[in-house]
Design a protein around this nucleic acid. Structure first.
Lengths: 331, 331
DNA sequence: CTGAAAGCGCTAACAG
DNA sequence: CTGTTAGCGCTTTCAG
């Protein structure tokens, strides 16, 4: 900028304003400046600009696992909305660990991100981290997981509805002994379990306690959990799995045991990850509109960052949608 | 920092040095400073630090598609190496488009990343972008794809070897009419095709030209391409697919046509994406050690960033490894 | 419409 | 070991 100013015999300020299309600059000067800037190959220095404006045009996206295609899709949605606005997105992986998440968020804040979108790995009820964020006035939006008792912006699907939708579908398909491979003790895992229970109760079904087994987020855990279920007597005839990776692992175990999916055992997952259709048995699932979650969260965060005062916490629920494929189609 | 200095009655510089564990500061002063910093909840401002030092401790990772789990795994490898070194990673998605890639790289440079790792979507032979990078003295490492005629740091697998490995495996399994669903005209697609041809020639096999059909990177393209292949007469009895997503799509088409994989048609992919094992028919593939590619590239880039003068371009070849699963096991 | 002054928060280089 | 001086490249504010 100094060079441009010198060459053109104007002040540095004039250049600065021209470059940013500031209003009070003559059309002619602006053109001269822009042209010369191009000739010199001028590249604005965002670091310096950020230091002066206290705005970085960077938003942080904290997710538990990039490898889980649900989150990769969310990330894509976020990017699609923010990039046209001139924002850059920094993705941080918390590996499902609360401490790692806290550290990553610290780092993002040290780099002065303008806002955060977080799919939190904090255990349910531990909302200290987010209270700190609020105190520091960092705009943030939670997605997918909603730590209990926290008034914060949130975009996601009602997990209890997911549980009900999936379980009722299995019931409609004629399953009577429905098991659940549950997820971790975070809002998603808890909500889906609750939905599973509610649907069973509503239809007068009762499952023995052993029918609820614990998985994690990944397919190996689904495989393990399903092997446990297969040892039970009577054996379940339908299983609602916490998510699609878990369901994929579960299917593997069932087939290995020489049983048929869906006839011996119907299976349904949640998330509709993009390869669900290509699995051993195409997987029935509950779609969560992952990229829509990302886009919606981005819009909401953009609003918050514009606003002078923080608007009251808003919760946006994306409706879940049943996707029936072969793994649960018995009639 | 100013507050700490004032409270403790020392100079701002002393605080700065203490905070960075600079050598010439007394143990006592350092402790006092650190303690007070903690009390005040001091957070260093990386923006300001970057402006002063001209180092951002950010590296850019440019990939064509986050949703492709091969690249997600590479990203994980990169992160694993760089995070302990205090670097943050910004992932940019080029969506397989050369122009988008150029724009993303421009943006990363405007934000003064310290280095770049790029899986380039530039068409083969168009190396202008990277010559610019070199001219600007930005350390960078290419991965996975190597635009022809470019002397640059590179980490990846020899694609011709992948093609040979996969094709020879099909031959060993008794296939005699081997087709290839080829990828785009970038080094990976070209190399794998060349390997396919070399292996065929070596074993005295000759495939009609219709046996090589074009796919892209994704499973829908594999599905389409395979439907074309199935219409041929005589029908191929083995297909080497550009990558695993393409192979997954291909398997879907074969099964839909009422044929058996591997007995009517053996299939092999490349990349060993993490769900290969869970597909309709567990997929044989050539493993590329995706996360090792990421880690190795990270190490190499770290070296380049340390070095005062750019070392001569280094190419690191990761050996491919055949992974035989059900989709190609005929004996 | 243009420009001078002051400063964003931190550090390199050097002097004491 | 501690402190002073002079920026990093840009913007905000306000006076002309």
């Amino acid at each position: 900028m100094k060079d441009i100013a010198r060459d053109l015999g104007v002040s540095l300020m004039t250049v600065s304003k021209a470059l940013r299309n500031h209003s009070d600059i003559s059309e002619q000067t602006r053109k001269r400046v822009l042209k010369h800037a191009r000739q010199l190959g001028y590249q604005p220095n965002w670091i310096a600009r950020s230091l002066a404006t206290r705005r970085t045009y960077v938003v942080g996206l904290v997710i538990p696992d990039l490898m889980h295609s649900f989150f990769a899709e969310v990330a894509k949605g976020v990017a699609r909305k923010f990039e046209p606005l001139g924002y850059q997105i920094v993705i941080s992986n918390s590996e499902e660990k609360a401490e790692v998440e806290e550290r990553q968020i610290e780092l993002l804040l040290a780099r002065s991100v303008d806002g955060l979108i977080v799919a939190s790995a904090q255990a349910n009820g531990r909302s200290g981290l987010f209270q700190t964020l609020r105190a520091r006035k960092v705009p943030f939006v939670l997605i997918d997981r909603l730590p209990a008792g926290l008034g914060a912006h949130y975009v996601g699907v009602n997990d209890e509805e997911i549980g009900v939708l999936a379980t009722e579908h299995l019931i409609e398909q004629g399953c009577r002994r429905i098991a659940h491979i549950r997820g971790p003790a975070i809002s998603t895992g808890i909500g889906r379990l609750r939905g599973y229970r509610r649907a069973q109760a509503k239809h007068g079904l009762k499952a023995p306690p052993e029918y609820v087994v614990s998985g994690r987020h990944d397919d190996p855990s689904g495989y393990e959990a399903m092997r446990d279920l297969l040892r039970l007597n009577p054996r379940p005839d339908g299983v609602f799995c916490y998510n699609d990776p878990v369901a994929a692992g579960a299917i593997k175990a069932v087939l290995e045991a020489g049983l048929n999916v869906p006839h011996d055992l119907a299976i349904i997952g949640a998330g509709n990850v993009h390869y669900s259709d290509l699995l051993r048995v195409p997987l029935s699932t509950v779609d969560q509109s992952s990229s829509l979650i990302g886009e919606t969260a981005a819009d909401l965060l953009a609003q918050c960052m514009e606003a002078k005062t923080q608007p009251t916490p808003k919760r946006i629920w994306i409706p879940p949608r049943l996707v029936v494929r072969e793994s649960s189609r018995r009639i």
